[in-house]
Design a protein around this nucleic acid. Structure first.
Length: 436
RNA sequence: GGAGGGAUGGCCGAGCGGCCGAAGGCGACGGUCUUGAAAACCGUUGAGGCGGUAUCCCCGUCUCCGUGGGUUCAAAUCCCACUCCCUCCGCCA
């Protein structure tokens, strides 16, 4: 099982090394991989040859035994000789098999440590080396409007929409309740998002959020991101951090007819994140929480169409934020911050007035063939050939952060919050959320 | 949780330990016939690794009959464990 096309490893290993370098990783792992790949092929060849002679030898034994049964003495001598030979050969085959298996396992493990090939158009560098592609909308000038904006938690409490105190009491820090209008707001966002996605040809999905290790590993979340994944050791299951996981595994071990591509799914699920290593960051409010709901787009398409589809997904994400009238910017994430599975990633960051900065609200990744290869999801083209598909994912709504954006950007001096027109039909036609 | 049954190719479904990558049927594809279609008939029809003057075609070889072990010269076929599915009983959102 290779994670990228093994021909790239054999014919153009420098491409792989360069990709690892751009990610800030170690290019030496490529050389070790190439060594194991070559070794495995040699050992496999030896095994195949031995096995082949064993099979042909075995085929002679049956008829000989028949002759022996009929009392053919010369056959008995022949048989004894063959048996002796076959026994030795059998041992050799077993030994050769063990050798190949060991190498094959090491090879598979080595492949799992290789990240996806980066898109050469992605900006090179670390977390801060992203490129801003565009700004949309204008942040409000609260000073000009004559009042100090309240942050989302203060607003949420005034509206009786967010309760973090009781969230902490019941479950611990970084947990919260959405109450009253807060809960209704989430449902309205869900319905607006689903309406848009279905209109764009997506099939709605409500997936399992507990998944088997193979699904987690196949999507690449057990690599560097493993520390942020909740695991249930008693049952050997993982709690997903995004419905990308079950949606990507949905067609694992399948061959999809090319004529059915692209297949577009939109999943609604709870998402669970341990937030290990983020102690002290975003401790106030619901920007960074352990459990939240998200509507996620997931697409299976041809490798040739992946880049164009990525642009479409980004546009759909923008359409949604446009409908909510939230100012945002689009960034092209740098190679060092892509995660192991993305070849390229665009984030949309919404303006958060009380923080005076843009914060990530959506993210769309082109994972090319990376996940499809790990999950064995292939396509059959019109000419009958089978090859891996490309997969892409993108956020439509991450509930807490969008709720934060709406509350802070559309707040009024009296603590009420204007409901954007697109959302009003899903909130009983109301124009504002009012303090209680 | 208790009792029983099952897992084979796109689907259904056979398979005395060697001649089985696997009968047969369905479906799909190609062809014959037809003005065209249907019917009938003929043929083709799983995935993957490696090698072969080889990205296509073709040839050779190996692997795969839920998963992992074992027995054997030889395993879809025998043994063990596990997983999943189905039926019945109990419990329950």
């Amino acid at each position: 099982m290779s994670v990228i096309d093994p021909r790239i490893l054999r014919d153009e290993p420098e491409r792989l090394r360069e990709s690892q370098r751009r990610r800030g990783g170690n290019p030496d792992s490529v050389d070790r991989l190439a060594m194991l790949d070559k070794l495995r092929r040699e050992q496999q060849q030896k095994y195949d040859d031995l096995r082949s002679s064993q099979k042909s030898l075995s085929k002679e034994i049956g008829p000989l035994q028949g002759r022996v049964k009929k009392g053919d003495a010369s056959a008995q001598v022949e048989l004894d000789a063959l048996m002796a030979q076959a026994t030795t050969l059998s041992d050799d085959v077993k030994a050769a098999e063990a050798v190949v298996n060991t190498t094959a396992e090491a090879l598979a493990a080595a492949w799992l440590e290789i990240d996806n090939l980066v898109d050469l158009d992605a900006p090179v560098g670390g977390e801060d080396d992203f490129v801003v592609l565009e700004h949309t909308g204008t942040p409000r000038d609260f000073a000009a409007e004559g009042f100090e904006p309240r942050d989302h938690l203060e607003l949420g409490e005034m509206l009786a929409a967010i309760d973090t105190e009781r969230g902490a009491k019941v479950s611990g820090s970084r947990f919260f309740f959405l109450t009253g209008d807060g809960a209704l707001l989430e449902l309205a966002l869900l319905n607006l998002a689903m309406q848009q996605a279905v209109g764009n040809g997506f099939t709605p999905m409500i997936p399992p959020v507990l998944v088997a290790p193979s699904a987690m590993e196949g999507t690449g979340f057990l690599g560097q991101a493993a520390e942020n994944v909740y695991r249930l050791p008693e049952d050997d299951l993982y709690l997903v951090g995004t419905s990308e996981v079950p949606l990507a595994a949905y067609h694992s071990d399948e061959i999809l007819d090319a004529s059915t591509l692209p297949r577009r799914y939109v999943g609604w699920s709870s998402c669970f994140r341990r937030e290990a290593g983020s102690h002290g960051r975003d401790t106030r409010g619901i920007i960074r929480v352990h459990q939240f709901d998200k509507v996620e787009m997931f697409v299976y398409t041809t490798p040739e169409d992946a880049v164009a589809e990525h642009a479409r997904i980004l546009q759909w994400e923008r359409d949604f934020l446009d409908a909510l009238e939230i100012p945002y910017r689009v960034i092209d994430v740098a190679t060092g911050d892509l995660g192991s599975s993305a070849a390229r990633k665009f984030d949309i960051e919404a303006w958060i007035p009380t923080q005076g900065c843009y914060r990530e609200v959506t993210s769309t990744s082109n994972t090319t063939e990376f996940q499809a290869r790990r999950l064995a999801t292939r396509m059959r083209s019109a000419d009958g050939a089978t090859r891996p598909v490309a997969t892409l994912n993108g956020t439509l709504v991450a509930m807490p952060r969008v709720i934060v954006s709406i509350l802070e950007n559309h707040q009024q001096a009296d603590g009420s919050v204007r409901i954007p027109a697109a959302l009003q039909p899903f909130l009983g036609g109301r124009s504002h959320l009012l303090p209680r």
